[in-house]
Structures are given as structure tokens and as C-alpha cells.
Design a protein around this nucleic acid. Structure first.
Ligand SMILES: NC(=O)c1ccc[n+]([C@@H]2O[C@H](COP(=O)([O-])OP(=O)(O)OC[C@H]3O[C@@H](n4cnc5c(N)ncnc54)[C@H](O)[C@@H]3O)[C@@H](O)[C@H]2O)c1
Ligand SMILES: NC(=O)c1ccc[n+]([C@@H]2O[C@H](COP(=O)([O-])OP(=O)(O)OC[C@H]3O[C@@H](n4cnc5c(N)ncnc54)[C@H](O)[C@@H]3O)[C@@H](O)[C@H]2O)c1
Lengths: 206, 206
DNA sequence: CTTACTTTGTGAATGATTTCACAAAGTACG
DNA sequence: CGTACTTTGTGAAATCATTCACAAAGTAAG
């Protein structure tokens, strides 16, 4: 549900960019392939933002949604594991947009990692993790290390006070209950795609 | 649901690797953070693979699950857009494992793309898309191009007979109903993580 | 001000997914 | 063979999510 809010935020941004000032739940829904009642219900969880018979003011609604998602504040992020994937993530400006600040990268081999990237995010040795982020508020750690060390690195991150982890490693990591973890797992998507391609008949089972 | 099957497949592989021959739904569930009834129900959709009072033979079950997912066959994949992210994807052996064959990459600038990668997948000019994949069976296209060209490239892919698209571009793409599309959208995950992080801090205060 | 129209916000209905709970079917072993 | 366990497969119940449908509240225009 929160992911849909994030989609609303994105589409509102594009409406704003196009100079559109007024929008209906039906139009938002159409653009995202959703039902208009869904859009209204989602928003209704957080307040009444619309005007019956008119719709929503794009600017207003966007501000509201960003407020709900808290993308109007700074989120401090670090990256652990600056390999193939980590390098791509570092130079992705999509992360830097709207409130996310990438502070540092960490790797066992910071030299060669540094060589790969063209971003100006400093990359430190993973040995210095604790000392570098000591006393800093770190909201989110992005995890892109090899599977074998994922749990060990996670434990260290948690000890350092990281509040949330975006995990690209195809493995379940164990964390205390108060730590948020989100998984991004391409192979899963690929495999399910494969299933539907082969087997369009049975695809209804989802 | 299919994504969970994919998880089962992965965990069974790791059990096999560890030399474990027998497994219960409860143990699979524990390892994946699921309910054991869920595991049994999922499998029950496709047949009866277990032995009451015993559990499942790891080898057997893994074969069955791979058969269901069709990861026992070859899936032919191409990559379109060999930039930061595309490069990482090309050198990800996780894709090459189990049945996925990455045939070619395509880019507007194949020279500089070629320079970036250390894989031996050939990279062609996007102008030659049609001629290169003419008459070939291509199951899945991985899309990692800039937002502005995503729809246009998608249209060409569909015309070329691609059956499914794994879309990394943070935008809804329009395709005919018989084409499968799956979205991988990191920003959405990051934003929803941000939401829960903030919420937790608020929760502590109250 | 009034009439015709639009679109919201939201209970109620429907649909989907997850969990419970237990009979049935097996194992293990004396 | 029989008794004590274990674990499956699966209806039924519970939970969660989506869609319907409509009164209420607005706009627009004469
Ligand atoms: N490359 C992809 O496209 C892709 C796709 C999906 C998932 N993944 C997953 O992401 C992770 C990284 O993949 P990759 O392709 O970038 O691999 P990679 O080997 O290129 O990168 C891993 C990086 O982690 C560093 N590292 C190793 N041990 C470390 C430690 N203890 N602390 C900090 N850094 C350490 C390595 O030096 C390396 O730079 C893997 O778990 C992989 O399964 C990758
Ligand atoms: N880099 C990331 O970590 C990341 C994360 C999430 C999403 N994405 C998305 O993935 C896409 C690619 O991101 P990126 O960081 O790799 O960008 P990028 O600019 O590095 O790569 C895009 C590549 O596409 C090529 N290209 C441009 N037009 C093309 C066309 N018509 N046909 C074929 N190729 C074409 C470019 O030459 C370039 O090599 C973007 O839509 C981005 O939003 C990237």
C-alpha cells in the first residue's frame, strides 16, 4: 500500500512537471492501471485531500503524499559492497533525488571499488565501518555484498545503529524485530516471468 | 505465489548442497519466515510430493519444483540498455545459473558499453535489434534504458516477438495483453523503507 | 438561487490469501 | 504386529485487500 503511495507521488510529480493543476482519482488510477476507489481509499487512510465534484489539486496532494512518505526530509544512506551492482547503484541519480543522501560506500577492497565508480561518494574500507559511522545518524544501509558475508555484515550494521536495510543479496537476513528490511531480488522476478511465459494457460493461479 | 516456489527452489538447492536429504515443510517455512501450512498449500497446487510422517525428499522435491517453474529448460534472454545497471546485470552470474542464457546486449552506443563490461556477451547497436534477433526465439528482454526511450524500445521488442519483459525503468510500459511484464523498482522500495523507519521513531516516542 | 453534473469518501460486498486444526497416512521401534 | 510419534494434505475459519455503489458535497452555468 505504501508502495502505491510512492507511485502516486511519482505520477503527481510528472503531472506537476506537465503543468497540470487539477487531477481526479480516476485519472491517477488510469495512468497507473489501478481502480479509482483504490486510489481514494489509499489516500483516505491519511486524511481528506480532495474536493467532491472537482478532484485534487496536484500541488497540494503531492505535498501531502510526500509528507506521509516522509520524502520531504533527509534520509541518510550508506552502501555496503561496491561491486558490479553497488557501482551501478552509486551512480543512480534516482536515489539521490527526493531526500535520499548517499553518504559513503564500504568495501573490502575500497581501492578497486573506487576505480570503478564515477561518483564522488567516498568509499572506505569495511574495517572502518564502525569508526566512520560512529555517532552519525544512518537511516538506511543498502546491502550489495556476496551472499557468504551478508549475515555477518548485517550484524555489524545493526550494531552500528542502522535502522533499515535494503537488501539486494538473494538471501534472508536475520535482524532484530525493530529493524526494517526490504528485499530486492531479480532472480525471483526472472523465474516467475519464465513461468508465465511458458505456461500462459495456468497463469491465472498467480 | 510463484515467487515463493522460486524461493523453495533456491532453499532446496542449498539443502542439497549441504547434503541434507530429507526436509519438512516446517523447516522450509522456518528458513524462509513463512507458515508451514503455506508451504504445503503452495506445493499442493501442483501435486502430492511429500510423505506423511517423514517430510519431503530434497532431491525429488527440487526436481518437481524446477519442473513447475520450468527452470529445467533454457530461457533465452537479451538485455537492452547496457549502461550502469545493464553492465551490472550482464556480469551477474545469478542470471546465468539455472537455465537463463543471456544472448546479446543492445545499446545506442555499443562501443562504450562494450568497454564497460567484462562479460563476453556481445553488444550490438540498437539499430540492429530487428536484424539480429530475426528468426530467433527470444523469451525475455531485460529493459534498462533511460525513461524517455522506454516505451519506444518496448514497442520494437514486442514487434520482434519478445514474449516477456523484465522492466527496470521506473515507468509503466504499455504492451499487448499477451506480453508478460514484471517491474523491478528500487526507488519504490527505498521510499517505503523510509516510511517505516520514520514510523518506528514516532512509535518509540508514543 | 436552482438545476444538472461531477467526483469524493466510505460502508458493505466481494475476492484473495493466509492460517488453523485435524484426520489420514506414514515412520520408528520394541 | 502394535503403540507412540511425526508430518502431510486440506477443508473451514480468519484475515487482508480490492471493488462496488451511492449519499454527500462540491462545481458550473444560466
Ligand atoms: N550484479 C547484479 O546484477 C546482481 C543482481 C542481483 C543481485 N545481486 C546480488 O548483489 C550482491 C553483489 O553482487 P555483485 O554482482 O555486485 O557482486 P560483486 O562481487 O561484483 O560485488 C561484491 C562486492 O562486495 C565486496 N565485499 C566482499 N566482502 C565484503 C565485506 N565483508 N564487506 C564489504 N564488502 C565486501 C567485494 O569486494 C565486491 O566489491 C550479490 O549478493 C549478488 O547476488 C547482484
Ligand atoms: N543505475 C541504477 O542503479 C538504477 C536503479 C534503478 C533503476 N534504474 C533505471 O534503469 C535505467 C538505466 O539506468 P542506468 O543507471 O543504467 O542509466 P545509464 O544512462 O547508465 O544507462 C542507460 C543506457 O541505455 C542506453 N540507451 C539510450 N537510449 C537507448 C536506446 N534507444 N536503445 C538502447 N539503449 C539505449 C545508453 O547508451 C546507456 O548505456 C533507467 O531507466 C534507470 O531509471 C537504474
Amino acid at each position: 500500500m505504501i508502495k502505491r503511495l510512492s507511485l502516486y507521488s511519482r505520477i503527481l510529480q510528472s503531472f506537476e512537471f506537465q503543468g497540470i493543476e487539477k487531477i481526479s482519482s480516476a485519472e491517477v488510477a488510469r495512468r497507473l492501471g489501478l481502480n479509482s476507489a483504490q486510489v481514494r481509499k489509499d489516500l483516505a487512510c491519511f486524511g481528506q485531500f480532495g474536493i467532491p465534484g472537482f478532484g485534487y489539486h496536484v500541488n497540494d496532494l503531492r505535498k501531502q503524499v510526500r509528507g506521509i512518505l516522509k520524502t520531504d526530509r533527509e534520509m541518510r544512506v550508506i552502501l555496503v559492497g561496491v561491486g558490479n551492482l553497488g557501482t551501478a547503484l552509486l551512480s543512480y541519480r534516482g536515489f539521490l533525488k527526493q531526500g535520499f543522501t548517499m553518504l559513503f560506500g564500504f568495501d573490502v577492497n575500497p581501492r578497486s571499488a573506487e576505480g570503478r565508480t564515477r561518483s564522488n561518494v567516498p568509499i572506505y574500507d569495511i574495517r572502518d565501518l564502525e569508526s566512520k559511522i560512529e555517532g552519525q545518524r544512518i537511516d538506511i544501509a543498502v546491502l550489495a555484498v556476496p551472499v557468504e558475508v551478508a549475515q555477518e555484515v548485517t550484524n555489524r550494521l545493526v550494531k552500528c545503529g542502522v535502522l533499515a536495510i535494503l537488501n539486494f543479496v538473494p538471501m534472508r537476513i536475520e535482524v532484530p524485530a525493530h529493524i526494517q528490511v526490504r528485499y530486492v531480488d531479480f532472480s525471483l522476478e526472472l523465474e516467475s516471468l519464465a513461468y508465465y511465459v511458458q505456461d500462459r494457460e495456468k497463469a491465472k493461479r498467480e
